[in-house]
Design a protein around this nucleic acid. Structure first.
Length: 107
DNA sequence: AAGCTGACTCGCT
DNA sequence: GAGCGAGCCAGCT
């Protein structure tokens, strides 16, 4: 039997150089700390919007919940699951939102 | 090659 | 204080 499986349709391919760099930056964020899209964007010399797109495609490959908006609001994922998850990691939060001023990781 | 999309950010109301 | 809209830029198809 032919075991020729075309994985070209699979999304299991390796992330692009840019995506991989973004994932690597997020992976460097320790527990209890978060990074804003703008911060990561600056790290990869890109723009905040591109970070979100990479995460959408590789969120399962990185700690997407450690990435929050500049306001400290968790990324729009599955409601407020991110906020609960961040708190479980010990992330400093205030008024139900991540205290970016305190939890922001500058790498 | 060009176009589309996008987990953003800022400003105003 | 909070919510909404428009703009922006660059990678991915």
């Amino acid at each position: 039997m032919s075991e020729i499986l075309n994985e070209t349709s699979e999304h299991n391919k390796a992330p692009s150089s840019f995506a991989r760099r973004v994932l690597d930056e997020i992976d460097r964020v320790p527990e209890g700390r978060v990074m804003t899209y703008g911060a990561i964007a600056s790290r990869v010399h890109a723009h905040p919007r591109h970070i979100g797109r990479v995460l959408t495609q590789w969120a399962d490959e990185t700690h997407w919940h450690r990435v929050v908006y500049a306001d400290g609001t968790p990324a729009t994922c599955h409601g407020n699951s991110a906020a609960d998850l961040l708190r479980d990691e010990g992330t400093p939060m205030y008024a139900g939102r991540v205290d970016v001023r305190r939890a922001h990781w500058d790498g």
